[in-house]
């Protein structure tokens, strides 16, 4: 019940942030979205993700959005073009609906959430849980997966995030805009 209400709140905030043409209001509502998201992560017992969401989602990214807004205009320009129902839009939505239903059909074969017989719970998770201490000597197996078992993946992620950070700094520090 609590989760349902939280998710409804999330959907309302997300739809509002998309449809609002006043970008400052959108940023404010996105901040509220992050606040609710933190509660959802905490209810899923993912405390570390909740920490990240609270500091990055509600704190830093709001400020980055605001500093980007201070370089541009506050209002979104409304184009009448997108509202018309021409043949291209119709075909595009047909393709999107078709792809979406194929993807949903693909999920029918997946095991249930938290299924005891699912392969991920039989082969992969015990390997990490029991092997972490013996192979690496790291007690927290979330850390051992992130830093050792999929270390190259984390390295690539860090590179992407560093590149994005450098790009944001370069864009926001330009004085001639």
């Amino acid at each position: 019940m609590v989760d349902l209400l939280l998710l409804v709140l999330l959907v309302i905030f997300a739809l509002y942030a998309v449809y609002e043409t006043d970008l400052l209001s959108s940023v404010v509502i996105l901040s509220a979205f992050s606040l609710i998201m933190t509660i959802v992560w905490t209810r899923l017992n993912a405390v570390d993700v909740a920490f990240t969401e609270a500091s990055v989602g509600a704190g830093v990214s709001t400020i980055i959005f605001l500093s980007a807004l201070s370089r541009t205009k506050r209002r979104e320009e409304i184009t009448r073009n997108g509202k018309k129902l021409n043949i291209y839009n119709f075909l595009a939505s047909l393709i999107v609906i078709f792809t979406g239903s194929v993807l949903i059909y693909g999920t029918f074969d997946m095991p249930d959430f938290g299924d005891f017989d699912a392969p991920v719970n039989n082969a992969i998770a015990p390997r990490y849980i029991y092997g972490s201490m013996a192979e690496l000597g790291i007690k927290n197996f979330v850390t051992s997966i992130l830093a050792a078992y999929r270390g190259y993946d984390t390295l690539g992620e860090t590179t992407v995030i560093f590149t994005a950070g450098v790009a944001v700094v370069i864009l926001l520090r330009r004085r001639d805009l």
């Binding site: 400052l24 609270a54 509600a58 400020i63």
Partner: peptide, 24 residues
């Protein structure tokens, strides 16, 4: 987390108000 949250909460508000009053 609740304490961290309470600390972070007002950062966004201060940023909004600063943006609103000074424009940057």
């Amino acid at each position: 987390i609740a304490l961290l949250y309470a600390l972070i909460n007002f950062v966004a508000t201060i940023a909004f108000l600063k943006y609103r009053t000074t424009g940057k």
